[in-house]
Computed example of a mutant assay.
Amino acid sequence: MSDSAPLIHPTAVIDPSAKLGEGVRVGAFTLIGADVEIGDGTEVGPHCSIHGPTRIGRDNRFIGHVAVGGEPQDKKFAGERTELVIGDRNVFREFVTLSRGTAGGGGVTTIGNDNWMLAYTHIAHDCHVADHCVFSNNTTLAGHVSVGNWVIISGFAGAHQFCRIGDHAFLGMGALVTGDIPPFTMVGIDGHGRPRGINSEGLKRRGFDAERISAIKRAYRTVFVAGLPLAEAKQQLAEQAQDSADVKQLLDFIESGERPLQR
Score class of each variant (00 low, 15 high):
G158M: 08
G27D: 00
N60P: 14
E80R: 03
G158F: 03
M1N: 13
P229G: 14
N90H: 09
T102I: 05
P195Q: 09
V91P: 03
E37Y: 02
G107W: 00
G166C: 11
Q161L: 10
Q242T: 15
H144I: 12
G172I: 02
H122I: 15
F29R: 13
R205W: 06
T110Y: 02
H47M: 04
N149K: 12
G188P: 06
G202L: 06
A12S: 06
G158S: 13
F224A: 00
K234E: 14
G57M: 05
S49H: 05
D180P: 06
R218S: 14
H160S: 14
N60Q: 09
L7T: 14
P229C: 13
V187C: 05
A241W: 02
D88P: 07
G33S: 04
F62G: 02
S49R: 14
A5Q: 13
R100E: 07
Q249G: 04
G191R: 05
E43R: 14
G179N: 11
S4G: 05
L251D: 05
G57K: 01
G45P: 08
D74V: 07
P183G: 13
E201C: 05
R206S: 09
N199K: 10
L20W: 07
K76R: 13
I181D: 03
V134I: 15
Q235H: 11
W116I: 14
I8T: 09
T54I: 06
V225A: 09
G107C: 03
C48K: 09
R100C: 06
G179E: 07
Y120K: 02
G23P: 02
R25Q: 14
C163E: 05
T109C: 10
Q242G: 13
V96R: 05
S154D: 13
T110H: 08
P182M: 06
G227Q: 14
A210F: 13
G27E: 04
D88A: 08
V247K: 03
K204C: 14
C133T: 14
P10S: 12
M117N: 03
I32C: 00
P46H: 15
E80Y: 07
G64H: 11
R194V: 04
G21I: 01
I213E: 12
L141D: 03
G45E: 05
Y120M: 11
P53A: 12
D131M: 05
N90W: 12
M173G: 15
G197K: 04
F208E: 10
G166Y: 06
M1E: 10
M117A: 12
A233S: 13
G27C: 08
